[in-house]
Amino acid sequence: MSDDDHHVLPKNTLLAVFGGLIVLTGLTVAVAVEPVASLLGPLTVPVAIAIAATKATLVVVFFMALKYDNPVNALTFTIGIIMVVVFITFTMFDTVYRGDLGNVAPQTVQEMDRQQKEAQQEMDQLDSEDLRVAPADYPDQQGAGGESTESGNADSP
């Protein structure tokens, strides 16, 4: 940290990294054209992203010299990348499974309906006075306003 000489990257390193980047660009185009693309099938996307990530890593580590830099800069950048991953992953937890509440099998729904009806019937057989718990359930004894009607709410879905 305290040395006054910043690390000077040799020109050859820079050129070698550039060469690598060009080769990887060629590779990512190559895997996207027809014979290879259908060969890879569902792997096309992961492969393309992996190649892009490799290229980006090369740029960050050498061109941006993070390898030779103060570690706190690397930490900063890493945390930023982690946040992007969090953002994408957690959003896709939702969008990939969107509507999963509706994915219940019809049998299950029917069974739930049946159970609910049974419970309703049981409730109907009970005397409403047995269900009084809150002060509001005793409208005759105190003026608790409109809440007296809520005594039957326990069974509403």
Binding site: A48, I49, A52, V59, V60
Partner: peptide, 22 residues
């Protein structure tokens, strides 16, 4: 300026395959 420029490059490195190739 160099750091900024490399970042602009990195963004493109991802945009290129995502938009053009897959």
């Amino acid at each position: 300026g160099g750091l900024y420029w490399h970042l602009v490059d990195i963004i493109w490195i991802f945009l290129f395959p995502l938009l053009y190739l897959i």
